[in-house]
Design a protein around this nucleic acid. Structure first.
Lengths: 221, 221
DNA sequence: CGAATGGTTCGGTTAGGATCGAACCATGAG
DNA sequence: CTCATGGTTCGATCCTAACCGAACCATTCG
């Protein structure tokens, strides 16, 4: 009975239905208040408060106090990764290999923490690799810089942090990888800023405008 | 309170200390019997039996009956991925950025389900990419075939299955990626077959012989 | 055929934790 | 200041699930 890392402790944090509902709600990277989360979890605010305290204590969430509100947010991308890893399970329950969620819109394009996921996210990432925007070690090539500039992205202008520029993230619905990291976030931000797409309220679905989708496809050639 | 996939249910399966201990013990890809697992979990066999039934029911484990023994095994690589995703947490608890396990041997080389992980696994994967053994889409190049042939691996001879040939797996201790998939397994098998390394009993540690390590390093140039 | 060993089932006990009502503290609005 | 609102703390209740002892089933071995 040697004991490895304390898997069970953090798994237990996710194991409660109310808590997991709140976590899923936070997967789009937004920060929500305690009462909003209470509603989403289907519980009273007292109970939610207790749950949220535990999640913060366990470093799954972080809080940001602002006036009389307290905003809760996922502690980082690794939390989103964990949640997606869990979703991989619940999805492929029954038949041979129908993976992911039923909602076609959610399969097509959605937000994963702070970057683009779903079919379009996977296509983008694979295109970036195949067309050598990214080198093998996931650094951005000269060609990559040019292409990114086409949609107004300048790598030098990205906020710096110790978070990696590019990271691969396993896609829940696709079972393939999409782009995360600071660049992944920047691209999503740009999609929204240019109004090529917008997030549907209270969901992780990302809805492309017809024009936005046309341009996006053209951008990938 | 819209509900996504049933994250909580499977998280709950991992959330019990006894169960998580058993799961971690299975992470090296072996198949163990119920009583062995009971011992590792620190519980009686009745209790273990109940736990194991739940894990099988939840499709986290699979059983294989053989005579009067029942061998339990992880249901697939996605389970190992989930467990590593959980470990990412419990490891970086305290200081700035000391990730992963304390045991140096475990950091250096270990078995993740059925492939090589740890520093050596990460180095191998990055070398394979940098030196173009693998293309951007993780298919094996001609050069890759040549290099693999050097250690006696013939891709045509690999057992076929619908499992992908190459997949990236996020490394728990390194926070970078290493190679999984059928090829990842084949390489580990080869390391063991050639006696370049052997697995330490009752642990995930992979111990390279001095000669094996020398050859391995030479193979990566 | 017993006897031994691996595993499961059943019943009763116990502990942990999720829940809510109610009271309480803090901030912001009027 | 007073009131409304967001959030936490406290106490009591209730339910689930982990646990083990004991009995039971199945397989192998002598």
């Amino acid at each position: 009975m040697r004991e490895g890392p304390d898997i069970a402790r953090i798994a237990a944090l996710v194991a409660d239905p109310a808590r997991s509902a709140m976590l899923i709600a936070l997967m789009d990277g937004r920060a929500l208040t305690a009462t909003e989360l209470a509603g989403l979890g289907g519980i009273t605010k007292q109970t939610a408060s207790s749950h949220l305290a535990k999640l913060v204590e366990g470093e799954v969430l972080v809080v940001e106090a602002q006036g009389r509100h307290r905003y809760f947010r996922l502690a980082g991308p690794h939390v989103a990764s964990l949640l997606e890893a869990l979703m991989v399970f619940s999805s492929d329950a029954a038949p041979p290999l129908r993976t992911g969620p039923r909602d076609p819109a959610l399969r097509k394009a959605r937000i994963c923490y702070d970057h683009l996921a779903g079919e379009m996210g996977v296509r983008l990432f694979e295109r970036m690799q195949a067309d050598h925007w990214l080198a093998d070690d996931l650094t951005v090539t000269t060609r990559g810089r040019e292409k990114l500039a086409e949609i107004g992205l300048d790598l030098e202008k990205l906020p710096s942090s110790n978070r990696p520029l590019c990271r691969a993230c396993l896609d829940w619905s696709q079972r393939r990888q999409h782009l995360a990291g600071r660049l992944g976030k920047a691209i999503l931000d740009q999609l929204l800023a240019r109004s090529w797409a917008r997030r549907l309220p209270a969901s992780r679905v990302l809805s492309f405008t017809p024009e936005g989708e046309r341009i996006f496809n053209g951008w990938l050639r």
